[in-house]
Structure formats: structure tokens, C-alpha cells
Design a protein around this nucleic acid. Sequence first.
RNA 1: CGGGGUGUAGCGCAGCCCGGUUAGCGCGCGUCGUUCGGGACGACGAGGCCGGAGGUUCGAAUCCUCUCACCCCGACCA
Length: 491
Amino acid sequence: MAKEFSTREENYSKWYNDIVQRAGLAENSAVRGCMVIKPYGYAIWEKMQAALDKMFKDTGHSNAYFPLFIPKSFFSREADHVEGFAKECAVVTHYRLKNSADGKGIEVDSDAKLEEELIIRPTSETIIWDTYRQWVQSYRDLPILINQWANVVRWEMRTRMFLRTTEFLWQEGHTAHATEQEALEETQRMLEVYAHFAENFMAIPVLKGVKSENERFAGAVETYCIEALMQDGKALQAGTSHFLGQNFAKAFDVKFASKEGKLEYVWASSWGVSTRLVGALIMAHSDDKGLVLPPKLAPIQVVIVPIYKSAEQYELVCQKAAEIKEMLENKNIRVKLDDRDTYKPGWKFNEYEFKGVPVRLAIGPRDVENGTIELARRDTLEKEILPITRLVEVIEQLMETIQRALFDKALAFRETNTRKADTWKEFKQILDDKGGFILAHWDGTGETEQKIKEETKATVRCIPIDDNMEEGVCVYSGKPSGRRVVFARAY
RNA sequence: CGGGGUGUAGCGCAGCCCGGUUAGCGCGCGUCGUUCGGGACGACGAGGCCGGAGGUUCGAAUCCUCUCACCCCGACCA
């Protein structure tokens, strides 16, 4: 009996929640706004971590860990930074509990008030820069290239699984450099790393660009970003890399003696991606049958489902399946043999389909006899029967093929959903009818952006990094513009 | 914080308007048997302080008051 599954058409956000739940990625916890990331969901995050971590190491970074708590006073050091985060900080005020007077419960011990309140990090710039001050004296101490994998807390009013939760997991890179040029290069290098990761591992095409002033990170001079388009036509910021200038160095007094013997402030960058990427992955590729995962990030790349009637057949088929599993594992393919006798084959087919396993193999007595196996692709839902002798070769090939097919499909979707708008009417029309990315001229002012946002909910997603300069007039104000920027409604 | 909604079995819900004695259904769960190439079927069975507190009443899941929790929509955001 088929279970109901919401479709994207009917109710996009319900479809999304169904996938998260039914694929076993995460569930709501007892704490409002916080989720439990379940093993399968966490396995996807671990795959992301592994790939990113390697890229960070390959570009010269080391991992370290800084405290979860940040003294309140640190926050006020950088003016824009406090203002940006003040409204969403969780604060620790006490360090002890005691039994309540009526003996029925437990309460905060008012005698145990902290002298200085601690903020639970919404991001770590402040504590890291306070630390870097100790580490830097000379140009010889630079650059500092550090990343940390951590959890952060931002007290959001409305949350959605993976896309916006009160606590989330991420990585944050924090680098210190002797020159502006070097810091800027670092910022751009990491943006490239993110773009490469998104496109080659997540199979999601991204636009690289710069944020408008309104959307810039609190405390940054410039925020670079990668923007992806989801299947409902909304944009999702998939990663950011900030050029911090000397803002934090000045706020935390981080100076170094240059080769010339002059005392100068250090230049900085910071960059991060979060578990939000899991949400992006879901919304970019999945279909009405469930999750669809790109092979490079799939915790299970191939699942083998044995088909049998009798106990003898079970033995026979499972033995063959185990051999196949080993053959594939020798090629570093992640294989699961689901030999549970407690579920039927049909049930398993559906199970792995909504879990997004890229390739499913089914093997039964007939196959064992004929030396064949049934192979089904999750992305296209195509099935074929092939000789076992060709299997390893075919699957190795298929991993590449599926990875590429998902990217191509997502790219084609983005291309058909990227449109130019030259008039205000056209602009609104596109948003109402179709959504997607809109390339339009903008006068570059925060006021205009704000007005556009109020009237349409669309924002400037980014000012693309490319050479497509083109004179025009702002779609809203009619003032001159030097290039088109990307607008969209966003997550 | 505004506006709307929902709390009944592990999950999804009906019952409530119009109070009535053992509180129901589907999925899931357990045992047994037949099944097994796209979510099998039958038989039997387990599982509920009807969100919490107070009130009205001979009698409350149902009516009243208060309270708590969660969800959706808006203002903020990776």
C-alpha cells in the first residue's frame, strides 16, 4: 500500500518536511527551534565535512577550537558586529541551580549570577580576534590560517529544518594577513573553494557574487557569496566569505611589526558554510518520490536488495549479493546489502527511493542462475538488467554519470529560471508568475533595495563577479546603473 | 510580539456543536500461518490519567474559566 507523499506542486514546504522526516534526516527536538540530526542526515553532513575539510587543508588551513561562550564585552568592540547580532543572542547569566523553596522543582540560584554575562557564540570573530592579539607580534607570525568546526546559536524567530535552526553546525574559517591584498585573495580563494564544492560535490550550480550593503555580514568590508536556486524558484545563500579589512584588528588591537619595522593592523577574512547545505541538497535535486542524492555525498551509493522465497534461496542470493558487495567495495564504492528478512523487497525499494540512494541493485534466484542483476537509477528511475560481469565497470561509470546528470539538470533549471527584467512591471510579473533569478539594473542604493524588498519580498542576492558590464537604468528608480544584478526571493 | 489553528495509543486522525455508562478508525507494533521480482494477506493480540488545573453536572474527551505546549501566517535572518 502506497503511502501519501506530498508533491512539490501541492505544497512545497510540506514536501520538504516530508523528505526530511521520511528519509530519516532529522526531527524536531524537545527544544523549540532545535532539531535532532538523525544518523542518515548526519552521515550526509559528515560527507560534506570530509570533502570540505580536505579542501581547507589543501589550501593551507589548520583546524582549531575556540570557546562556545563569549564575554559580553567582546561583542561591543566592533560596532556593526554588535548591531548585527545583538537581537539574536542567547545569554548565560547564571552558573548554578538549586532546589526550589516548595521542594517541587529546581530553579536558578540567584546567588550564582555571573559577574560578566556570557554570550553563546552566534559566530566567533570576537573571541578569535581577542586571541589572535596574543599570537601576532611580527609579520613572521602571519598569516594565520585557521578553521573551526563548531555549533553556533542564533535565536531566530522562525525556524525550518536545516535551513534555519536556532542551533546549527558549521565551519568558520578565520584568517589573519599582513596585507590587504593577501586577505582579499584569501577571501576570494575560499569563495572558489565553496563554489567548487557546491558544483562538484553537491551538484548544485552557483552564482558567485558580492553582497549589497544591506546583506553584508555585520563587521565586514565586503561579503562574497555563492547563491543557488531551489526548485520552487527561491534563492538560497549557500556559503559566504568575508573580507573583514582591518575592522576586527582595530577593534581588538591586533598589530604587527612589518618588515619595515612599522606597526600595522592585521588584515582579516572569515568564511563559513553550515548544515543549511543539507537543506540546499534536498531542495535542489529531490523529486516527488523523495530524496535524490549526488553519489559523492551519498552515505550509501549502492544498495543491494536480495529477492527470494525459501530459506535456501535466501542463502544463495545473499551469498551472491555479498560477493558483489565486496567487488564494489574494492573499488571504494559505498555499498549496503539489505539482507533483513523482516521487510519485503517492494518495501525496501520504496525505502531506498525516498532515502535517495543513487543506485539500487536487485538480485533474485533467476539472476543468480543467469548471471544477471537488475540495476535501477534513482535520478531517472530507469531500470535495466545486466550481466554481473559488467557490473563493477557500469557502476563506476554510473557514479560519474549520475553526479553529472544531477548538475546538468540543476543547471538547466537555473538557466530556464533566470530572466532579464527591464521594467518594474516586468520585474513584478516574473516574481509573481515564476520566481527564479531576475537580472535587472539597480541604482546601487540601499533605499531602492529596501523599497523593492517591501513591495515584492525580493532582494539583491548578489552583484555577480563577471565581466558582463552593461549600461542601463534602475528597474525601480530609473537612475543610471552600470550593470545588472541578481534579484530573487530568498530563504 | 500581532493574527489564525491544533492538543484524544508510537504516528495520522474521528468523536466535541447537541454531555450518557466497555473512547473509536487507519498506519505502525507483537505472535502464528500463508506470502516474497515495486510498500503482501488472514487470524489473534498489546497499547489511552482524551495536554494540565479548576469549575458546572447525578454523570465531562464533549460545556465554562484559567494555564501550558506546539504548528501555520506576518515583522528579523546563514
